[in-house]
């Protein structure tokens, strides 16, 4: 217990922590995030949640724009395939995200900057786990340099 405590960064340090934009669908993942809070599941405060009606509503440009405007990472989560509130939104989204990730890696971006997953409304613990995993992966890459007009030396 004391060991775990020693590893925790002290509050209010100026140490860099990743800024991650999380697009969560209204019906599953946002509720899952809510449940993580209600269930007191601990996860890093690195995500900035944007609630969208459906993962199929997420325009790939939103993800690129988030990266361009300074997000260190982007995470997208929707209902599990087959459970979409709008029946098929996440099926279309799945193809889009698969292709987008390939495109971003072709551009030279690290594959660990963007993450796609499925979290249902009952998976509060899983949401916390996903955020922990994403935060670890993005933190390992360091700050993103894809800034407006800036140089992109370290993506």
């Amino acid at each position: 217990m004391s060991q775990a405590k020693a590893q925790d960064p002290a509050p209010h340090t100026r140490e860099w922590t990743p800024r991650i934009v999380a697009f969560l669908c209204n019906w599953c993942s946002y509720a899952g995030a809510d449940l993580a809070g209600t269930g007191r599941n601990q996860y890093p405060p690195s995500v900035r949640v944007i609630r969208v009606p459906c993962s199929g509503r997420i325009n790939p440009i939103y993800i690129i724009k988030a990266l361009v405007d300074g997000a260190d990472g982007v995470m997208v989560s929707g209902c599990h395939p087959g459970d979409c509130h709008y029946l098929a939104g996440n099926f279309y989204a799945r193809r889009r995200f698969t292709v987008l990730k390939r495109l971003l890696t072709t551009m030279g971006l690290s594959p660990d900057r963007v993450h796609f997953t499925w979290v249902s409304a009952s998976e509060g613990a899983r949401f916390a786990g996903v955020v922990r995993e994403v935060t670890e992966k993005v933190a390992a890459l360091g700050p993103s340099r894809i800034m407006k007009g800036g140089d992109m030396d370290e993506l």
Binding site: I64, V99, I146, G149, G150
Partner: peptide, 25 residues
């Protein structure tokens, strides 16, 4: 406004990545 008045590298990246996604498949 996706594109600012004075676009930088990131905005060009937005354009090319966005257009490529629109043309995917």
């Amino acid at each position: 406004g996706w594109q600012p008045t004075v676009p930088g590298r990131g905005d060009k990246m937005l354009y090319h990545a966005g257009r490529t996604m629109h043309l995917a498949g």
